[in-house]
C-alpha cells in the first residue's frame, strides 16, 4: 500500500504545513490588522502585493525564490551572513517559500474578519478602560475567530497542495524536501500508478475534508453558499 518513502513524504508535508501555518498566523495577523485599519494610500498596493501568490504561477514564485535564496541573491547573502548557509534544498527553505506562497490565504480571511467587526467593539472596550492589548485579546480575537479558523484551514491546505514552488527549490531530498505532491509526480513519471493512486486519493480526501471544515467553521458560510 504505502511505502516508507510515501509515509515519509506524508509526515514531512504535515510538518511543513503545520510550521508554515503557525508562522503565518504570527506574521499574517499584524499584516491583516494593519490592512484592515489603515487609511494610508499604501493599503491598496500592499494589499495587492500580499495577494500576488493567488494569481502568480508557482513557477514564477519558485524561480525568483531560487534566485533570491541562491548565493548571489539578497536572501542568500543575508542567510550566509547569519552563518546558516543557503536555504534552497532545505526544509526551512521550503518553510520560507510556503510562507510567501500561502500568505494571502491567511491574511485575507483575518483581514475580512477585522473589517467586518468595525470600530465599534474597540471603542466600547476603550471606554471600559481596556488596554489595547487587552482589547485585542478579549474582544478582537473572539470576534474574529471564524476568520482565524478559515485562515488556518486555508493556509494549511494550500501549503499541503504546494507543488510548483517545491519543485523549483526543493531538490527532492527524502524527509527534507520531498513532499507528497512531488512524490506523486515521481510515481506517475516512473509509471508506478498504484502508489500514485494511493497518495492521490489521500490528497483528494484531505482537500474535501478541509473544505467541509471551512463550511462548518464559518457561521455565515452556509448563507453565503446558498445565495
Amino acid at each position: 500500500m504505502l511505502s516508507d518513502t510515501d509515509l515519509g513524504a506524508l509526515s514531512l508535508t504535515l510538518r511543513l504545513a503545520t510550521i508554515t501555518t503557525l508562522l503565518l498566523l504570527l506574521t499574517g495577523t499584524p499584516i491583516a490588522w494593519w490592512l484592515a485599519r489603515t487609511r494610508s494610500w499604501l493599503k491598496v498596493p500592499l494589499g495587492a502585493l500580499v495577494a500576488l501568490p493567488i494569481v502568480l504561477p508557482p513557477s514564477v514564485l519558485g524561480f525568483y525564490l531560487l534566485l533570491a535564496m541562491g548565493p548571489s541573491g539578497p536572501i542568500g547573502h543575508f542567510t550566509q551572513a547569519l552563518g546558516i548557509g543557503m536555504l534552497p534544498f532545505t526544509f526551512w527553505g521550503l518553510v520560507l517559500a510556503s510562507t510567501f506562497y500561502s500568505l494571502p490565504f491567511v491574511v485575507q480571511p483575518i483581514q475580512n474578519a477585522f473589517e467586518a467587526m468595525g470600530e465599534r467593539p474597540l471603542e466600547v472596550a476603550a471606554t471600559l478602560r481596556a488596554s489595547p492589548l487587552d482589547a485585542f485579546v478579549s474582544v478582537v480575537l473572539p470576534l474574529a475567530k471564524p476568520g482565524f479558523l478559515t485562515a488556518i484551514v486555508l493556509g494549511f491546505a494550500h501549503t499541503v497542495g504546494e507543488f510548483g514552488v517545491v519543485l523549483m527549490i526543493g531538490g527532492n531530498i527524502p524527509d527534507k524536501t520531498r513532499v507528497v505532491s512531488v512524490q506523486i509526480y515521481d510515481h506517475v513519471e516512473a509509471l508506478e500508478y498504484t502508489q500514485a493512486h494511493w497518495l492521490a486519493a489521500i490528497m483528494v480526501g484531505f482537500a474535501f475534508a478541509a473544505l467541509l471544515m471551512l463550511h462548518v467553521f464559518h457561521p455565515t458560510g452556509r448563507r453565503k453558499w446558498r445565495q
Binding site: 531560487l66 541562491g70 548571489s72 534552497p88 523549483m168 527549490i169 531538490g171 527532492n172
Partner: peptide, 18 residues
C-alpha cells in the same frame, strides 16, 4: 544529493549556483 525532476531542472540548480 539534490535531484531535479529532469535534466533541465538539474541544470537550473547548478547554473544558479544553488
Amino acid at each position: 544529493f539534490v535531484q531535479g525532476e529532469d535534466i533541465g531542472q538539474t541544470y537550473q540548480f547548478v547554473s544558479t549556483g544553488n
